[in-house]
Simulated assay, not measured.
Amino acid sequence: MRNIMITIEYKGTNYCGWQIQNDRISIQQCIENAIYKITKEKVSITSSGRTDAGVHALGQVANFYTNSSINIKKIPEAINSKLPDDISIIDAKEVDNNFHARYSAKRKLYRYAILNSKYKRPIHNDFAYLVKYDLDINKMIQESKYLIGEHDFKGFMSSGSSVKTTIRTIYDIRLKKEEDLILLEIEGNGFLYNMVRIIAGTLVDIGRGKINRSLKEIIESKDRNKAGHTAASKGLFLKKVYY
C-alpha cells in the first residue's frame, strides 16, 4: 500500500467547500471520483484542513493510500485528466505511511485579498472582497502586528467549532497594497473556524474607522462581539502548508 501526498490548486467558487456533502459538489468528491477513474479504487483523501464554500487554494495538501503502481511522476497529469478545469493537482510525492496531511502539518500560510475600490472589478470578482470605503492602510498594518505571537484567539472564532483549545501562534503577518488590492498574508501553527476571515474583517473595520479599540484589546477580551465582521469567503486562499 502506497501513501501519496498531493498538492492541489483550486478555485472554490463553484463548490460547497472541501468536505463531501450529500447534496452539493465538493472539492474532495471531485478528486476522489477522479482517482477512482484512474485506479478503480474507492479512496478517501485526507486534507490538511477543510476550506469553506468559495474559498480557494494555491497549495492545499492531501494524502491517500493506493495499491496502484502508477508512476508517481504521472499521477498529477492522470488525475487532472479527470478533473474539472477549476481543480488541479500540481504535485505528487510518495511519502511514509505515517504521513497524515492534517496531523503532520507544522504551519499554514493564508492569503486574503481585499479590493479597495469604489467600483466592482469583474476580473477580481471571484478572488477578492470588495470594500468601497476609504481604508487607512498604515493603521491596519500597525494594528496587525498585535496578532503576532501566542494568543487566545477565542474572539476570532465563529460559533460551531468544538476545538480543545483556542490558543494559536501567529508567526508572521504581512499587509501590503498593490494599486486597488490590499493583500494580507498570515502564517501560523493553526487557525480556528473563520479566524482569518474575522481577522480580515476586523482590520477592514479598523481601517475604515468603524472600530476604534486596538487589536490588542480585542485579543485580550476574547469576545467575538468586540472583533469585526467576517469577511467574504471569496477573498481567502490557502497558500501553503508546511511539514
Rank of each mutant, 00 (worst) to 15 (best):
G201Y: 11
V163Q: 03
D172Q: 13
G188W: 03
I198W: 03
S221W: 02
R197L: 11
F191P: 02
R197N: 11
K177G: 05
M195T: 06
H229F: 15
E220K: 14
G207Y: 02
I199A: 08
D205H: 12
I167G: 00
G188D: 11
T202V: 12
K176T: 11
D205Y: 02
E185H: 02
G160L: 10
G190L: 01
N194F: 14
G155R: 02
I182L: 08
L215Q: 06
L203C: 08
T202E: 07
N225F: 12
N189W: 05
K154A: 13
I218K: 05
E187M: 06
E217N: 14
K176R: 13
R208A: 01
E187T: 01
S162T: 08
K154N: 03
I198L: 12
E178Q: 04
Y171E: 13
I198V: 14
H229K: 09
R208E: 14
T165R: 07
E217I: 05
L175I: 15
K222I: 01
E179I: 02
I173N: 10
D180P: 00
N194L: 10
S158P: 02
S214M: 04
I211C: 06
I198D: 01
T166W: 00
G188K: 09
L192H: 09
D223N: 15
D205K: 05
E178F: 03
K226F: 07
R168F: 08
R208S: 15
I206E: 02
M157N: 07
T202M: 09
R213S: 13
G201T: 13
N194W: 05
A227P: 04
R197H: 10
E187S: 07
I198K: 00
K216E: 15
D223M: 03
M157E: 15
D180K: 11
E217R: 04
R224N: 01
F191L: 05
S162M: 02
L184S: 07
R208G: 01
I170S: 09
S159K: 14
L184P: 03
I173D: 12
G155P: 08
D223R: 04
G160W: 12
L203P: 02
D205W: 00
V204R: 10
E217M: 04
S159V: 05
L183H: 04
N194S: 12
V204W: 11
N225W: 01
K154Y: 06
L175C: 07
I206Y: 11
N212G: 00
S158L: 07
R213F: 08
R224S: 02
N225S: 14
D205N: 14
I206R: 07
G201P: 11
G160D: 10
K222Q: 10
R168W: 06
I218A: 04
L203W: 04
Y193W: 09
L192D: 06
G201E: 09
L184T: 08
R174I: 13
I173V: 15
F153N: 10
L203E: 01
N194H: 15
K216T: 01
D172K: 15
L183M: 14
V204Y: 10
T169M: 04
F153S: 05
R213A: 05
